Amino acid sequence: MPAQCTTKDDVRVEIDRIDQALLNLFAERHRYVTRMAEIKTDPHEANDPARIAAVIDRVRTRSLALDLDEDQAELVWRTLIDWNINYEKGIIAARRRAD
């Protein structure tokens, strides 16, 4: 727990541990995004405003429940979503060119 850390090094070790866990989760999420891109047939499908709004609403609500700044969480998710949209569009477009 954070309160049990007595030095900066103690805190850094825990942050590094959490960063590795986040990377593992982002890698898992990325595999699902890749699969979604394989399922979609049109690059325009990558940008779904209704789905994005629902995800952002859920992230903001869950952030508040975790005592996390909801604006910060939204910024992280919007960045992630924007990257995923471009990634999906690239995969879909490349597949369509190859067909």
Rank of each mutant, 00 (worst) to 15 (best):
T79K: 12
L23M: 09
T41Q: 01
E38P: 09
A73F: 03
V76F: 12
L80K: 15
E38V: 00
T61I: 15
D99Q: 09
A53E: 14
L66G: 02
L68K: 03
D9V: 11
I85D: 07
E74N: 12
K8S: 14
V11Y: 10
P2G: 09
T7R: 00
K8W: 09
Y87I: 02
R97N: 03
P2W: 04
H30A: 03
D57Y: 13
E88H: 07
R62G: 15
V13P: 12
D99K: 01
V11Q: 09
A65Y: 07
E14W: 05
A37V: 09
R96I: 04
P49W: 04
G90I: 09
D48P: 14
R31K: 09
L68S: 02
L25H: 13
P43C: 01
H44S: 15
Y87M: 01
Y87N: 01
A73M: 08
H44L: 08
I92G: 02
V13S: 10
L22T: 15
R35T: 13
A46K: 01
L64F: 04
I39L: 05
A46E: 03
I85A: 06
H44M: 11
E38D: 10
E14N: 15
V13Q: 04
V76K: 02
L25R: 13
R17M: 04
D71Y: 10
Q72S: 11
E45A: 00
V33T: 06
I85C: 06
A54C: 11
T6G: 03
D71M: 11
R12I: 15
Y87P: 11
C5K: 06
D9R: 13
Y87R: 02
R51M: 07
P49D: 06
L22V: 10
L25M: 14
V11P: 13
I15N: 04
L25P: 14
R78E: 03
I85M: 08
D19L: 08
A50N: 15
R35P: 11
D71E: 14
F26V: 07
V11T: 02
E14L: 11
D19T: 02
P2C: 03
R58Y: 14
F26G: 01
T7P: 00
A73V: 01
I18S: 12
P49L: 00
I92Y: 05
D69V: 01
R12F: 15
I15H: 07
R96K: 10
A54G: 10
A73W: 00
A37Y: 00
L75M: 14
R95P: 01
N86V: 08
D82F: 03
E38R: 08
P43A: 02
I85G: 14
Y87T: 01
R31L: 07
A27N: 09
Q20M: 09
T6Y: 08
M36A: 09
R97D: 05
D99T: 08
R12Q: 15
A93R: 04
R95M: 07
N24M: 06
A98N: 05
